[in-house]
Design a protein around this nucleic acid. Structure first.
Lengths: 197, 197
DNA sequence: CCTACCGATCGGTAGG
DNA sequence: CCTACCGATCGGTAGG
């Protein structure tokens, strides 16, 4: 269907050039139609934007929650590393989606700032709920130090956000080394003080 | 001088709307002249861009190295917290400079990509050299665990990058709490395992 | 530093 | 899904 084709080409363009930087004439050319014909599928450019965003958002949510179900039986340390890896994997495999997300989080088109912020907080809440349970169980079972939940949560989110940024400005090898370093250090920050890791 | 005024207004605009998103007509209006008059100070838009970038780069370098000199006598734990605070302070006080820098790093205008990358690596090398010395001394004096230098470096950079992202999407109170949480956890990741912090 | 202008391109519409 | 447009705005120039 050409509506899908419009959305997937728009995703690529919005991610690489931004919203205002994307011309509908170029979008049309990639899809293989004239610019005016786009308007028989979408009301205007803004409607295309939100359709693209909604799709990218659902993709991210689905992949993350599916992944976490697969590692329930592992230790907290392993689940922590898995969580970080999974985000990294997302940046790599799904480069366009992640780039769009990154761009729209950091530099939203002025008019869409509020709407995008709402979507982001929605995602964070789902992520937080999941993480909070993880931490609580790990503390109760003495897998990690008795850390304040919000403190531990803030740390993991900060790490994930930091790697998110760094992915786009280091080359693959350098980035992979950084991921391993950060996983190691992050575990150290959670580990019970008495045992040496 | 109106050349300075052009540069400082251009900084604000490039940071908040990006290069292509900034219209010379708006720049002129903010400066208080007509668009055509800008061309008596600069050859074209591109020349304004590089003048702005060069200035922002020098500012960032100067402020960071000046700050670090003032805390040489403190403990590593305090210097670590100071470094994080200083970056946070930089985002807050000097929001425009930092925002421009990050935007141009992550989403450079296509034509300027190579030139910008060179500037970034230059900055990172200076930052790394400084951090490396900090870590080495702290390890030798047994203030922190015997951690691989690159690993420790990667951790601090990741934290700083993560907080940068988060600064733009949390409100002030929430953000400040996250900074404190992250400082605490980051210190835990460096601390010798035997002493409880 | 200004007025007056240029060609190119933007998002969007009319009408088929 | 097309041709043929629209007004608005872009970066930049001529000439004073």
């Amino acid at each position: 269907m050409s509506k899908d084709k419009i959305l997937s080409e728009a995703l690529t363009l919005f991610a690489s050039r931004g919203y205002e930087g994307t011309a509908l004439s170029e979008l049309a050319e990639r899809v293989g139609m004239k610019k005016a014909s786009i308007y028989s599928h979408f009301k205007n450019k803004e409607e295309i934007f939100w359709a693209v965003i909604d799709r990218a958002y659902q993709d991210e949510i689905d992949k993350f929650s599916k992944g976490m179900k697969e590692v329930q039986q592992l230790s907290f340390r392993e689940r922590l590393h898995f969580m970080i890896d999974q985000h990294v994997h997302f940046y790599k495999e799904n480069d366009v989606n992640a780039t769009l997300w990154r761009r729209m989080t950091l530099f939203p088109p002025e008019a869409f700032r509020e709407g995008l912020k709402a979507k982001l907080l929605e995602y964070e809440q789902q992520f937080n709920a999941l993480l909070e349970t993880e931490l609580q169980v790990a503390i109760e079972e003495k897998e990690i130090s008795d850390i304040d939940l919000d403190t531990g949560l803030a740390m993991i989110l900060c790490i994930v956000d930091g790697l998110f940024v760094e992915y786009s400005y280091y080359d693959e090898n350098e980035f992979n080394e950084r991921v391993e370093a950060v996983k190691k250090m992050t575990w150290r920050s959670f580990a019970p003080k008495v045992e040496e890791g």
